[in-house]
């Protein structure tokens, strides 16, 4: 079989499955060697992933319909997965905790698996319809997905937080290796804030683009509305924490709820007709 981007990206899917297993093993068995292996595999996967996306970009030019690989559901899922791993690796180096990986890499794997294996997803490179032929496409999609990926990680952190706070210290082997709740709380908030900045930038670039393409920066189309709903959930989270001083558990629930809203914005809205007919 000759090497093309789809082949490369389906290899990446398996690499992430392996790295997920190693992160889970690190968490369960607490061996630093597993952690080292998990890190090396993830970085390798990330490198292949980047190469795969570049290959797809080049292939589209060879087909004479060149455009950045961000133009349909398949490509957006691949990019989503890529941003999750990117942000996760930054967090791993920054906070020097690998157990979080067991709760984050599955998201990246699932996104790749859904992209590659779902029969409803068109994996071929398609030409761009006139409405998508705009430089705003890249700005809009990258910012949105940096936001979504941060929220995916914040959701993973929320799940860890709830596990940790529901089990008193030291009761279970699976709990002891997790970061302290205070650190988790800070990590969760920082990721949410990062995601909020990028979600806002995503909504803004989308609005500017819509205005240049259709003459209206906001038209209450279901996808727009759902991105606003998501934005409101995180605005509540930020204010509740900043100002009302809500402690971690409620913030963790809000963070999980926010990610449900993200998923709905991303997938659910495809079942409601509107301008963003990415998924059909």
């Amino acid at each position: 079989m000759n090497m093309n981007s789809s082949y490369m990206l389906s290899i990446v899917m398996f690499v992430y499955l392996v790295s997920t297993s190693f992160y889970v093993a690190t968490w369960v068995y607490k061996r630093t060697t597993f952690g080292m292996v998990a890190r090396i595999i993830t970085i390798t996967g990330f490198a292949c992933h980047s190469i795969g996306m570049i290959m797809r970009w080049v292939e589209s030019y060879q087909m004479g319909i060149g455009h950045a690989p961000l133009s349909n559901l398949y490509e957006s899922l691949v990019f989503f997965s890529w941003t999750i791993i990117l942000i996760y690796l930054i967090i791993e180096f920054r906070y020097k905790n690998q157990i979080v990986g067991a709760f984050v890499t599955p998201f990246a794997f699932l996104a790749m698996a859904y992209a590659s294996l779902s029969p409803n997803i068109e994996t071929r490179i398609q030409p761009l319809v006139p409405a998508l032929r705009s430089n705003w496409l890249i700005a809009h999609v990258t910012t949105c997905f940096l936001g979504y990926a941060s929220f995916a990680i914040a959701c993973g952190l929320g799940i860890i937080y709830l596990m940790k706070s529901n089990n008193p210290e030291g009761r279970s082997n699976l709990i002891t290796g997790l970061p302290r709740t205070k650190i988790l709380d800070i990590m969760m908030y920082n990721t949410v804030v990062f995601g909020f900045l990028f979600l806002t930038a995503g909504i803004i670039t989308g609005a500017v683009w819509a205005n240049s393409a259709w003459g209206s920066y906001w038209s209450w189309d279901p996808k727009e509305t759902w991105s606003l709903i998501t934005w409101l959930v995180y605005a509540v989270l930020i204010h509740a924490r900043m100002v009302r001083g809500w402690e971690g558990t409620r913030i963790a629930y809000l963070s999980i709820m926010g990610f449900v809203a993200v998923l709905f914005t991303y997938f659910g809205v495809n079942y409601i007709p509107g301008l963003h007919s990415y998924g059909q």
Binding site: W220, P222, T225, W226, L228, I229, L232, V233, A235, V236, H239, A240, R244, V269, I272
Partner: peptide
């Protein structure tokens, strides 16, 4: 603020 933001979110959901 929290009440208003939540109410806005819920009504927006109804609108979709």
């Amino acid at each position: 603020t929290l009440v208003l933001l939540i109410v806005l979110a819920i009504t927006s959901i109804i609108g979709t």
